[in-house]
């Protein structure tokens, strides 16, 4: 019996086994991470030049595909200028904001690491006064 345990250990020390096990392990950990972060929620904030949140601005999100032009989705910001998109399964997208009385924000492109990744837009979208 003891002999067999030793043999199992020896198998485990084999280069093939170690390599494939560690690859498997990395994939496993990654899948678990993905499982816990794939609600497809994209959040962010729209602010004016002073950094104050702008309520009721329209936020436009467009999927970016090499195949051509896609239909955009829109949402509106809440009282503090925050917005949330739900169930987004894009891998790359362009986001921008607009509101009457302001010039539209820059169109900013983001790329995610997996589909339906929960993502917080790192830089708030800035609207400037004046049309």
């Amino acid at each position: 019996m003891k002999f067999k345990v030793n043999m199992v250990l020896k198998y485990l020390k084999n280069r093939f086994v170690i390599t494939f096990l560690s690859i498997g392990l990395i994939i496993g950990i990654w899948s678990i991470y993905v499982q816990y972060n794939n609600d497809g929620i994209i959040t962010g904030k729209v602010v004016d030049e002073t950094g104050k949140g702008i309520p009721n601005a329209t936020v436009i999100i467009v999927e970016e595909l090499s195949g051509g032009i896609q239909e955009p989705l829109t949402t509106r910001t809440d009282g503090k200028g925050n917005f949330t998109f739900k169930d987004i399964d894009y891998i790359e997208f362009i986001i921008s904001a607009k509101k009457s009385g302001y010039t539209a924000s820059d169109k900013i492109r983001y790329h995610l690491y997996f589909k339906r990744e929960n993502f917080k837009i790192p830089k708030p979208l800035v609207l400037k006064k004046g049309s």
Partner: peptide, 11 residues
């Protein structure tokens, strides 16, 4: 540098 191209490959 980023790994986005690899992500695209996967999808």
């Amino acid at each position: 540098p980023n790994l986005y191209n690899f992500v695209d490959v996967y999808y």
